[in-house]
């Protein structure tokens, strides 16, 4: 037992050290200009980390305002999309005949590029509010919702239908109704699948939030700032927002992994 946990800890340390060491090497190469030589680029298009960090420090208020705007869209879309996706999966699992077919259609939403989806949704939501800020937020959230919905519905459907052998027969011998079967068997069985879906949709929610900002009427958000700054040739500032976007993505993913560990550990 102790040997096992020891090796586990060793593994954890190893899996942390390697990426950290790689990161350190990368940043050093970046700051010393080695990276620029390797990539055959200049310090203009790829500014030094110190300059990027200075800009982040100097503009923390403005950056945070944009971060909250993007985060709000990503999280709302993630929540709406996941709930909606799960409900669709429940529906599909209850009526498998129509269900599996409709799931195929929904999963095809995942194949629509956000750049194609965004203008359509923005047009669709044009009348929801006279305030550009409100209708842009709605449009962006709907885009993220659609994208997140797809991965959740497909995964949750598997969780709701791919049950352990004979478990359904067991429920039947107990005389359980459909509701009990759902609550005691299908729902718990789907929990790991929910996390599988979230592992996909959390990063995707951020990416789609950033890209949808390109097209939104109301000018705000980390993604929009990246594009604006690149187009007026302010690469240092663009990179500041790119770094911030990376941090958001990593932070949300780490939170998800922690939540998954917590929830799934309790189940065992």
């Amino acid at each position: 037992m102790s040997v096992r946990s020891n090796s586990k800890r060793k593994n954890a340390v190893q899996s942390a050290i390697l990426p950290l060491a790689f990161g350190a090497v990368l940043v050093t190469a970046w700051q010393t200009g080695l990276l620029h030589k390797l990539l055959n680029t200049d310090e203009y298009v790829l500014p030094y980390p110190t300059r990027i960090l200075t800009i982040i420090g100097e503009n923390s208020d403005k950056i945070m305002e944009n971060v909250w705007a993007s985060l709000e869209v990503a999280l709302l879309g993630l929540v709406f999309g996941s709930i909606l996706g799960y409900l669709i999966a429940v529906f599909a699992a209850a009526f498998t005949k129509i269900g599996s077919g409709s799931l195929t259609i929904i999963s095809s939403f995942n194949a629509i590029p956000i750049v194609a989806l965004a203008p359509v949704i923005i047009n669709w939501t044009k009348d929801v509010s006279p305030e550009a800020e409100v209708r842009s937020t709605v449009a962006k959230v709907v885009i993220v919702t659609i994208v997140c919905m797809a991965s959740m519905s497909v995964n949750a459907y598997r969780g709701l239908t791919e049950l352990p052998a004979f478990s359904q027969d067991l429920m039947k011998t107990y005389g359980a109704g459909r509701i009990t079967e759902f609550a005691k068997l299908r729902l718990p069985n789907s929990v790991p699948y929910i996390f599988t879906a979230l592992r996909v949709s959390v990063p995707v929610s951020i990416i789609s939030a950033l890209v949808s900002e390109y097209f939104a009427e109301y000018v705000i958000g980390v993604g929009r700032q990246i594009r604006e700054n690149i187009l007026i040739a302010q690469y240092s500032t663009a990179w500041a927002y790119i770094i911030v976007a990376c941090v958001i993505g990593i932070a949300m993913y780490v939170l998800l992994i922690a939540a998954e560990a917590l929830v799934l550990k309790k189940r065992r």
Binding site: L76, V128, V138
Partner: peptide, 12 residues
């Protein structure tokens, strides 16, 4: 405004 946006999205 934010609450409004959330409500509208949910309604939609």
């Amino acid at each position: 405004k934010k609450a409004l946006a959330v409500l509208i999205t949910a309604a939609m």
